[in-house]
Computed example of a mutant assay.
Amino acid sequence: MRERIIDAALKRFTYYGASKTTMSEIAEDLHCSKASLYYYFPDKQALHIAALEKAGETYFLDLREKANAAATARQALMELIAVRHEFARRFCRLELFKVLKDRQLVRFAHEAFENAREREIKLITDIIEKGAARGELVTAEPEKVAALYMHAMIGLRLSLVNKDISEEISDAEFERVREWQVQLADIFINSLKK
């Protein structure tokens, strides 16, 4: 039941936004009482966090799957960009950054972002190491290169969109970030070739 509740909340949060969704609406979608929801989650905030965690796990499974299926390091990095953008578009209404502004959740949010960053750097490190093993790339410090690449990608997202981080991003802004990230990935890959 807990998973069904999270799935129903994620569906509503994705479509309407977390702040515009009520526990009553989620209960209606599940044909159960609000008390059933509160049995598993003490409040909407706890359900919101659970939905964010599930979305994050789905994101990392998709990243790993696409990276493992790629034939080259370049293809793998391009797939990661595509997955990131699809995730951002699909889940932009989850109000992830509003969680960051909630004083009670700052510790959770900081830990979650740090964990996500470390997982993504690890995945990029794996891509670079596989590229080096196949003879596509040359680097003595794949972890350092992966961390630099990841932070550069984050910097592009933050510098190209001149808005408060909690505001919605337009399709044109999404596309601009994607284009620049593709160019940056090509620069990185070309700099690591023999």
Rank of each mutant, 00 (worst) to 15 (best):
L37C: 03
I189W: 01
E111T: 05
A50P: 03
L158M: 14
Y149S: 07
Y59H: 13
D186R: 08
K130W: 05
R103Y: 08
D7A: 15
I5E: 07
Y38H: 02
L96F: 12
I128N: 10
L123E: 04
L30N: 13
I127W: 02
I189E: 12
R89Y: 00
F13I: 04
A88S: 15
V106K: 15
P142V: 08
K98W: 06
E143K: 09
K20D: 09
F91V: 02
A71H: 05
L96N: 12
R107Q: 11
L192I: 03
A55G: 11
D102V: 01
V83T: 15
A109I: 00
Q104M: 05
L37W: 04
H151S: 11
D29R: 06
Y40V: 00
E167H: 09
Q104I: 00
K34W: 05
Q75K: 12
K144M: 06
I128E: 11
A27S: 01
R90P: 07
R107N: 10
L96G: 11
E179C: 03
I121A: 15
A109S: 13
Y15K: 06
R178W: 01
A172D: 10
S24G: 04
E136T: 02
T22C: 00
E167P: 10
R119N: 14
L160V: 10
A140P: 08
F91P: 14
E79M: 02
L105R: 10
R93Y: 00
F41Y: 02
E141N: 13
V145M: 09
L77S: 13
F97L: 12
K54G: 06
